[in-house]
Design a protein around this nucleic acid. Structure first.
Length: 397
DNA sequence: CGATTTTGACCCGCGC
DNA sequence: GCGCGGGTCAAAATCG
C-alpha cells in the first residue's frame, strides 16, 4: 500500500491540474525562537497590475512530521532550521509540468521524509498520499488570485441574491452579507504535522469561524482567523483522512503584527538569551530535543543558542545587503511564483533573510541525502516544501 | 459579560 | 443551468 500510495502521489500532482510544483526540503531548527512559521510565508502577490502574468499565486506546501513526543505539546516554534552557512543553493527546479513530476521523483531532490516520495518509505508514503488526497481539498490551486478582477467585483454583489431564494424563511431577515473578493487570495502554506493536537500553537491567537466536513474524511476542517485587530491571516486545520495522527495546517496571508509569543519572549529578555529561551520552551512543552542522532551531523550537534546566534548574525548581515542579494522572492520567481510584496511579520524576518533561506534550502538538500526522516528522540528535523506555483486556477469560469 | 466556539445557511467558483 | 464542494457569515451557545 505504501508503494502504491507513493505512486499515486506522484501521479497526482502533475496530472491533477497540471500544476507546477517542486519539493524542497526545508529543515527547520528550533533554534530560531524569534520566528513563527509566518516568517516563511511569502506575502501576497502584488495587487498592482503586475500580476497579470502571475495568475497564480504561489503555493508552498510544507511538510513537517513530528515525532510522537510532539503529541502532547505543540508549538510550531520548535521547528526551525539549522543553518549551514557553507552550503550552496541547490539548482533551481524548472517550472514545467514535466519538471514537476521529475522533481517529485527525483531522488536527487533531497527529501528526507519524502525521499519517501521516490523511494517509498512506508511512513512517507502514507504521508504523501495524504498530501495528494488533500491536494484539492486543501486548495492546492494555491493562491488563487485572479489578477484581472473582471468586473471590479469588490464584494458587493450580494443584494441580488435576495431574490433568488426568498423561499427560505430566515434568510430574508438576514442582511445582505458582506463578501470578500475571493479572487484575491494570498498564497497558502500548508504544514503537515504528526500530532494529536489539532490546533498547534504557533504563537498567534486564533478565532475559529467555521468548520466543514471534509469529503472522504471523517475529520472536519476548521477555519481560523487571527484575532489581532486588522490582521487577516487565516488558518485552516484538518486531519488527514488516511492518517489520523497527521494534521494539515494551512496558513494564508501575513500577519500585520508580531506574534504575542514573540513579544512575550522579548519582554522577558529572552530574545537576547537564546539558551534561556530554549530552556523555557523545553520546560513548557516537554519537547524531546531529538539531538543525538548522528546522522544529523553538525547542524544538530550545534547548540541551540549557537544556532540562534548564528542566525542572528546571518540575518543582520543579510539585511545590510538585502538590496543587492537576490532574495527568496527571486527564488520564487524562478518557479513562476507570484512574488511576495512584503513580509509583514518581519521583525526578525526569516523571509527577508535570503541568505538564511538559501541555506535553509540547501540544508534540506543535505539532509535528504541522509534520509533523515526524523530523529529517534522526537523532534522533526525536516520538512518537505513542495512549492506549488504557476497558474493555479487557469480557468476562466 | 466579553471572548470564543458551534453550526446551519449562504455565497461563489467550477465541472459536467 | 445545475449540483457540488470550499469557504465564509453570523446568530446562538458556551466558556472563562
Amino acid at each position: 500500500m505504501a508503494n502504491s500510495s507513493a505512486a499515486a502521489f506522484l501521479d497526482e500532482i502533475p496530472n491533477k491540474k497540471n500544476k507546477e510544483s517542486c519539493i524542497i526540503n526545508f529543515p527547520f531548527s528550533p533554534a530560531l525562537p524569534s520566528h513563527s512559521i509566518f516568517d516563511m510565508i511569502p506575502s501576497p502577490p502584488s495587487q498592482s497590475g503586475d500580476n497579470h502574468h502571475q495568475k497564480a499565486s504561489s503555493f508552498v506546501y510544507m511538510d513537517m512530521l513530528t515525532t510522537q513526543d510532539f503529541t502532547t505539546s505543540s508549538t510550531l516554534f520548535e521547528w526551525f532550521p539549522t543553518n549551514d552557512p557553507d552550503l550552496q543553493l541547490p539548482p533551481l527546479p524548472i517550472t514545467s509540468p514535466a519538471a514537476t513530476s521529475e522533481v517529485l521523483n527525483n531522488p536527487a531532490t533531497p527529501v528526507s521524509l519524502s525521499s519517501s516520495i521516490s523511494s517509498s518509505s512506508h511512513e512517507a508514503g502514507v504521508a504523501n498520499k495524504s498530501v495528494a488526497e488533500n491536494e484539492d481539498e486543501l486548495g492546492f490551486e494555491g493562491g488563487v488570485e485572479e489578477p484581472d478582477e473582471k468586473n471590479g467585483d469588490h464584494g458587493i454583489r450580494l443584494v441580488e441574491n435576495q431574490n433568488d431564494q426568498q423561499d427560505q424563511t430566515q434568510k430574508q431577515v438576514k442582511p445582505a452579507r458582506k463578501r470578500k473578493n475571493t479572487k484575491q487570495r494570498p498564497p497558502r502554506i500548508t504544514f503537515k504535522t504528526r500530532t494529536d493536537v489539532d490546533h498547534l500553537d504557533d504563537g498567534y491567537r486564533w478565532r475559529k469561524y467555521g468548520q466543514k466536513p471534509v469529503k472522504n474524511s471523517p475529520y472536519p476542517r476548521s477555519y481560523y482567523r487571527c484575532t489581532a485587530l486588522g490582521c487577516e491571516v487565516k488558518k485552516r486545520i484538518e486531519r488527514s483522512s488516511t492518517e489520523a495522527s497527521v494534521v494539515l495546517t494551512s496558513y494564508e496571508g501575513n500577519h500585520t503584527h508580531h506574534s504575542p509569543e514573540k513579544m512575550r519572549a522579548a519582554n522577558f529578555g529572552m530574545m537576547h538569551n537564546p539558551s534561556g529561551f530554549q530552556e523555557q520552551i523545553h520546560q513548557h512543552h516537554n519537547i524531546t530535543d531529538g539531538v543525538g542522532d548522528g546522522a544529523l551531523g553538525n547542524q544538530v550537534a550545534m547548540s541551540r543558542s549557537q544556532q540562534y546566534q548564528q542566525f542572528l548574525d546571518q540575518n543582520q548581515n543579510v539585511r545590510q545587503q538585502q538590496q543587492a542579494v537576490p532574495s527568496l522572492l527571486d527564488y520564487n520567481n524562478s518557479f513562476n511564483t507570484a512574488p511576495p510584496v512584503s513580509v509583514v511579520n518581519s521583525a526578525d524576518n526569516f523571509m527577508d533573510s535570503s541568505a538564511s533561506f538559501r541555506r535553509l534550502l540547501q540544508n534540506q538538500e543535505n539532509y535528504g541525502e541522509h534520509n533523515l526522516v526524523r530523529n529517534n528522540g522526537g523532534l522533526l528535523q525536516d520538512m518537505v516544501v513542495p512549492m506549488e506555483m504557476g497558474g493555479a486556477r487557469a480557468r476562466a469560469g
